[in-house]
Simulated scan of single mutants.
Amino acid sequence: MRGAGAPRRRLTRESAAAWILVLPFVLLFLAFTAGPVLGSLGMSFTDIKQRDLRTPFSVNGVGFGNYVKAFQDETFRKAAFNTAYFVVIGVPLTLVVALGAAVLLDRGVKRFQALFKVGYYLPVVTSIVAIAVIWRFVLAPDSGLLNTVLGWVGIDGPNWLGSKTWAMPSLIAMAVWRNFGSAMIIFLAGLQGIPQSVEEAGQIDGAGSWQRFRYLILPLLRPTILFTSVTTGIGYLQFFEEPFVMTQGGPLNSTISVSMYTYNQFGFGNYGLATAMAYILFVVIAVITFIQFRLLREK
């Protein structure tokens, strides 16, 4: 009996030691992550505003009223449309450019490959303020680099950031330029992880370059495509910096995003409504991520 009880006591001591070691993390997680998340969820069902911070017990519950109000808000619907537009166009374009650059580096560029990697990845780690300065110079209506080049061939370029038609495509182009480098690095790692014998077997069977890429390489890149599409999609659904820095949501709310409008509502002191908008975006992100896993999972 004594021998049987010793392992049990040792296991109990090890469990106690493990809990003592993880206790600081658990306390910090509850205090700074789980607590605020649950608190904000509760706020989304109340009419709390900035003035209520001094008298929190005067806050009233409104049920799903904030969620209904969000969907009834014309500006919020416009922001949702803009965000969907940004994601539907921006994510595939980013992945295509990133995959093309990865294939070029893996198959075509042999010399100075490291230099190209750094050059493509540099915008990812560059400050949005610096990027905004560059793109404002490029897209300036009168003296901008792009309109100057178009003028050389007789084309009168538009006011890219001041036009309701061209402001969002301009932000998408900037986002693709800024973000494709990280996806490119991941695609490059996936390409270099594919055995050379796979492509050689296809070549022996008479498959051309495009057939080998379409029917051999792309299926083997499915996990990489899934990862990059999920991470890029989540980032683009939350896009905020581009319109905030470049257009302030204009012109006429044509570039305002859900994240930016939620931020504005927090600034206006409408905390209950803002948290409801944030949770609507969270649910959308979760649903789209689930769909991506269903469509792109390995078969």
Rank of each mutant, 00 (worst) to 15 (best):
R2N: 06
G5N: 07
A16K: 14
V26R: 14
V26G: 11
L27H: 14
F29I: 02
F32E: 04
V37M: 01
G39F: 05
K49A: 15
Q50L: 15
N60F: 15
G63H: 12
N66V: 06
E74H: 06
F81P: 00
F86D: 00
V91W: 00
P92V: 10
V97M: 08
V97A: 15
G100D: 12
Y121S: 06
P123C: 14
V124W: 14
V125T: 11
T126V: 14
I131S: 07
I131N: 08
I134M: 15
I134F: 12
L139M: 02
L139E: 01
G144C: 11
N147G: 13
G154S: 09
N159T: 09
S163G: 12
P169A: 11
A173T: 11
A175T: 14
W177T: 09
A183N: 12
M184D: 02
I185D: 01
I185F: 02
F187R: 00
G206I: 03
S209F: 12
F213L: 08
Y215V: 14
L218R: 03
R222D: 10
R222A: 15
S229K: 06
T231E: 04
Y236W: 04
L237P: 00
P243L: 01
G249I: 05
V258K: 00
S259F: 06
Q265R: 03
A276R: 01
Y279F: 15
F282P: 03
I291F: 13
R297N: 09
